[in-house]
């Protein structure tokens, strides 16, 4: 509950955080090397088995929904309006025309977001925040930076809870939180002023506590959590290197002869995102509607 981390027993989970960080770097690099929608789509599909392996399919799909929102927006708006497009592909009502070059551009961008998003989600969901912190420390990142990163995970649920108390406490002072928009904007002060003060006091107190737990002591620090790079990590790293080499080979020698990106592929991916997006809206509306009915009785 404190973070997005999903404690599961899987090969991906047991990888060293550093391997997984390199993996994220590798995916980012690949998404730029493969600046072709078809190849990126293949790459995205190829990442999915890793998600299955990590046993986080459902939470992955939930969090990737939000990225899909960007994809729909980019593909639609860019596809129509981006001025680089010249070759019309198809027309929808109102004379709005999707053009080939713009669609390629938009697809590359959208798929890149999805690919990088997938890798990031995979990393966050399978890596214990403490492990991430200690891995960072092994890479000579300063202790205090790693700690700040880690304690952010810890303090978010606390602030969320405090925010709820402050809201109740202000309502108890006859503050109407369900007023007009202007009223609501005005309410931000009684909400955020106490929250800010309380958070500040908590962090301040914590700094004393850390001092008393020898946090600023010079010299070697040790950690309870062990992160070790093992044979699994090496296999994984080798795999990544292999794929990377293949990508570069493709990019340098094959691009001339490969024409995977067709009008059909672009159109289908555009429609695909629309359909998925449509489902999301329907689901949202139904939920709202149920909420209304539920609230009425």
């Amino acid at each position: 509950m404190n973070s997005l981390y999903m404690p599961k027993d899987s090969l991906i989970h047991s990888l060293d955080p550093r391997t997984k960080m390199l993996f994220v770097v590798f995916v980012v690099a690949s998404s730029f090397i493969l600046n072709d929608p078809a190849l990126q789509l293949v790459f995205l599909v190829a990442l999915f088995p890793l998600v299955v392996m990590a046993k986080v399919v459902k939470p992955y799909l939930i969090s990737i929904q939000f990225l899909l929102l960007f994809a729909v927006l980019i593909m639609t708006v860019h596809g129509i309006y981006n001025p680089i497009g010249v070759t019309p592909v198809f027309e929808i009502f109102g004379g709005l025309t999707f053009k080939y070059e713009s669609m390629v551009y938009a697809s590359v961008m959208s798929f890149r977001i999805l690919v990088i998003g997938t890798a990031a989600v995979l990393f966050v969901m399978t890596t214990h925040p403490s492990d991430m912190a200690s891995a960072l420390v092994k890479w000579k990142v300063p202790h205090s930076f790693a700690f700040i990163l880690l304690s952010t995970f810890q303090i978010i649920p606390i602030i969320a809870r405090e925010a709820k108390i402050v809201m109740e406490a202000q309502q108890a002072r006859c503050l109407d939180v369900k007023g007009s928009l202007i009223q609501r904007v005005k309410n931000l002060v009684p909400m955020f002023a106490p929250l800010f003060i309380i958070t500040f006091m908590k962090v301040h107190q914590l700094s004393y506590v850390l001092e008393c737990r020898a946090f600023s002591r010079k010299g070697e620090k040790t950690s309870l959590r062990e992160t070790k790079i093992g044979s699994l990590d090496y296999t994984f790293l080798l795999g990544m290197l292999g794929v990377l080499a293949f990508e570069i080979y493709l990019k340098l020698f094959m691009m001339g002869s490969l024409h995977l990106t067709t009008d059909a592929l672009l159109t289908y991916s555009l429609f695909g995102t629309w359909i998925v997006f449509g489902f999301m809206i329907i689901k949202f509306v139904v939920k709202q509607f149920q909420g209304k009915i539920g609230g009425a009785n």
Partner: peptide, 10 residues
């Protein structure tokens, strides 16, 4: 009156 006055006074 809440337990912690910091939640109410600002």
């Amino acid at each position: 009156v809440f337990q912690n006055p910091n939640h109410q006074t600002f």
